[in-house]
Design a protein around this nucleic acid. Structure first.
Lengths: 139, 139
DNA sequence: GTGATTGCAAATCTTTTGCACTAAA
DNA sequence: TTTAGTGCAAAAGATTTGCAATCAC
């Protein structure tokens, strides 16, 4: 295991603790898969398949539970670009996305490459939680 | 029928003709429902329910077909903000959206109230089709 | 122990599909 | 006619749920 993933793991432990989630085998192994590499955009089915391929025994229902719990704990960010399927982004820093309409693939745009010069006031009684910019590209 | 919806109807007829779509009873009645009022964000189920309530006999499958055909004909714009459900926006002018996380409701932001000062180059071989800005708000 | 977590299968929800019937040109 | 469009019911996908078994504390 690389030192990068060790750091990632201890961060995960902290976040789980902060969220009151027990560090179970499944959560830690899924975290290992999610955070071992570069920033990724992954769907529940894909993570489940990857887990099975890596001999990590976990049910699809638990994958869904874990992805949502990690999202609540701000370890992941959920992105919905097309009907039917959610992606979870392991990059929770400020950034936006290219969406490739043909392939359905998502690609990060570093936060500093998009700048929003003006934003309206949020409606009465609400505050802005997040601004998503999706740049849809095609051939 | 107001003159506004008469104008809308003849526009619909033109767009259908341009798309090679026959102006069937179902398409015209659904267009009537969609474009009779202000800008709306409506899901397939909702439009179907509204049609039934207005004694417009049409199947849910036809509602789906029609919404997609209208979207291809640029009479509508599809918006996906949360998993599982698509909304169709009767406002196809340049604009963005507030998304109310609690209620799931969408609200238009006029195009001129959001300005994007910088955008990255699209990836090799692609061009930008659309830029969606979703401002997620909560209480 | 005891309360949280997991796995499984069934259920749910939205959307799509196959195909016989109907309607527009 | 001939071809597009429609309705229905079934199928398909993604996600959620109920509940008994299992695990962390």
């Amino acid at each position: 295991m690389t030192s990068t993933s060790l750091r990632a793991l201890s961060y995960v432990l902290d976040r789980l603790r902060a969220a009151g989630l027990r560090p179970t085998r499944q959560r830690l192994e899924l975290a290992g898969l999610l955070f071992k590499g570069l920033d990724r955009h992954i769907a529940a089915e894909e993570l489940h398949a990857e887990a099975l391929a890596a001999n990590v025994r976990v049910s699809l229902a638990t994958v869904y539970n874990t992805l949502h719990q990690f999202t609540d704990a701000r370890l992941l960010r959920e992105i919905v670009v097309a009907g039917g399927r959610s992606y979870f982004d392991t990059n929770v820093a400020d950034h936006h996305h290219f969406y490739h309409e043909q392939s359905g693939r998502l690609e990060d745009i570093p936060g500093h490459l998009v700048s929003i010069a003006a934003l309206p006031e949020p409606p009465q009684g609400t505050s802005i939680r997040r601004v998503d910019v999706i740049v849809r590209v095609g051939e």
